[in-house]
Computed example of a mutant assay.
Amino acid sequence: MKENNHIVVVGTSAGGMKALIALVEQLPKNFPAPLLIVQHISSDATGEALLSELNKIGKLICVHAKQGEQIKAGHIYLAPSDNHLMIEENGSVLITKGAQENRSRPAIDPLFRSAATSFGSRTIGILLTGYLDDGTSGLIAIQRCGGICIVQDPADADYPDMPKNALNQMKPDYCVPIAEMGGILSVLISEKPKKQTPIPEDIIKEVKIAKRVLSDLPAVNSLGEQVPFNCPGCGGVLWKMNEGSDLRYRCHTGHAYTAAALLAEQTMKIEETMWTALRMFEERKNLLTTMAQDQKGAVAQSANERAKMSQVHIDRIRAILLSNDNSSATDSPV
């Protein structure tokens, strides 16, 4: 890519297909910048549905990004399932199986940060509809590196959580409905980029960790301080990040979470553990009930009492599992 060319990176989740179609339809055939897109999808999905829909529009060439290829203007590059999509300084694609960020792979933040460190003020980041808050710290990184940030107006989003969380943590350059983004992009990419400012060292380190280039304790120690709870992804120590107003956490193997994503992951792990405990107590009760039926005297009486106590535990665990805990809501792949 030429030195003055821009790069556009887009992140979305729930409701993303509809939003992306509406965005791409506004762009001309000769759009003079590449678009790199991360949409949260499950690890067993192919992403072919979105690829097909964007190619039906017929203006820009849409492909799944491939390792090492050079990005080109007028092309759309989609993150493949179960892989992070990142960009190198020379404009080549990096596809990596790095640790999940915000419970997702592909995740939005790794793409946004890599674009920010590689293209600086030439980066335009767009955050669209979705649950939770992936993409917020990536947008902040783009802004800190001199780039432009665009957030979908939450009132225009089918799932407003991601735009709302971004607006709670930062002030983007634009907060508009999707219908206005095409015109804004056309203006922005025709302008000369702002003078490049130095790239913050903490963002560079996070990009290196996500690329699996850097994964050691001193690197993470320099980014924050240890906290008294573990990474639900690998069981390792977590560090609270120092930079930014939003609460974020990292482990040295690469897992990263916003506070909301970490709470959701912890809730899911707790639920899994309690279902396991429920099954084990039910098996224990069944065994004790069988013993009470097959034995006599004190042995039968003891087994029967212990079976009743197991039922008490079963009822308590079931009540907890059936309680309405809004924090257990997850970001379902769409």
Rank of each mutant, 00 (worst) to 15 (best):
N55F: 04
Q226D: 04
S121W: 07
H40W: 03
N83V: 00
P106I: 02
G130E: 02
T46H: 07
N304S: 15
D156I: 10
S302L: 14
K18R: 13
Q266V: 06
N165A: 13
G297R: 01
R250C: 07
K59W: 04
A307P: 05
A219G: 08
I21M: 14
Q100S: 13
Q196L: 13
K2W: 08
R105T: 09
G91E: 08
R284K: 15
L278K: 10
G236I: 02
Q152S: 05
E271N: 13
I199T: 15
I76K: 00
T267L: 11
G233L: 03
I76C: 01
H75M: 11
E180F: 07
E69W: 08
Q67A: 14
S13W: 03
N230M: 11
G15L: 08
L94T: 07
P154M: 06
P32S: 12
G244P: 08
T117N: 04
L139D: 04
V312I: 12
L36V: 08
N165H: 13
A49S: 15
A261G: 15
S137I: 07
S328T: 12
K2P: 00
R284D: 10
L262N: 04
K29L: 11
V220F: 01
P28S: 05
G147A: 08
I140K: 13
Q311A: 11
G235Q: 11
N168K: 15
N326G: 14
E225Y: 12
A45D: 14
A300V: 08
K285Y: 01
